[in-house]
């Protein structure tokens, strides 16, 4: 099954996603698809914290910052993939390695097709995204376009995922479906 998890920052999404992925995978293979490409010490310490959090949970880590469906290459078909996060994936795709400073207008569509392919092909997939849509700020056009693109990916995934969850201060709100006992 496929699960989408959203919510505010530091509300428990990643930890909850790991628990779900472990539960869904049973005895099958489980992959942690890390999408963040570290740019500074703050990123590296966040990654170190996540690695520590999931130590001993049996994940194989795949570092995939772009072309998300490539995580399927060589993987067993009934594997479970935890993608953390859509937010970082979109940012990376907006600025390909060869970019000239302008955001790539094809990025959102590339993310969408890759994510939908993963959802359709994986044994199980758990997607983590961020809820960044409810504040009183007039953003610049780049940020506004980024928010719109991320929301379009969230909505595309929410449509195909059997279960959609919002994490609020560690509490679970089901917007669609449920979870196996």
């Amino acid at each position: 099954m496929n699960v989408l998890i959203s919510g505010g920052c530091k509300n428990g999404k990643s930890g909850f996603a790991q628990d779900i992925a472990v539960k869904l995978s049973g005895n099958g293979k489980r992959y942690y698809v890390a999408t963040m490409i570290p740019y500074d010490g703050e990123d590296r310490s966040r990654i170190a914290r996540h690695i520590e959090d999931r130590a001993g949970m049996g994940f194989e880590t795949l570092e995939i910052g772009r072309d998300i469906a490539s995580c399927l290459d060589g993987a067993e078909s009934d594997s479970t993939f935890l993608v953390d996060s859509i937010t970082a994936l979109l940012l990376n795709e907006l600025f390909p390695e060869t970019h000239n400073g302008d955001a790539d207008p094809e990025a959102a569509e590339r993310c969408r097709s890759g994510l939908l392919k993963l959802a359709a092909s994986a044994g199980n997939a758990v997607f983590v995204t961020d809820y960044i849509y409810s504040d009183a700020i007039r953003y610049d056009s780049f940020t506004e376009n980024y928010r719109a693109a991320l929301a379009s990916l969230d909505r595309a995934l929410a449509e195909v995922c059997e279960t959609v969850i919002e994490l609020c201060a560690g509490n679970v709100i089901f917007h669609k479906g449920g979870l196996p006992e």
């Binding site: 409810s134 504040d135 009183a136 700020i137 007039r138």
Partner: peptide, 19 residues
């Protein structure tokens, strides 16, 4: 309506009143 009132309190007085 968009729920613009969930985020951080904005710096500008007009934006605070708006929220």
């Amino acid at each position: 309506c968009c729920d613009i009132f969930c985020g951080v309190v904005p710096m500008g007085a007009d934006m605070r009143t708006w929220r």
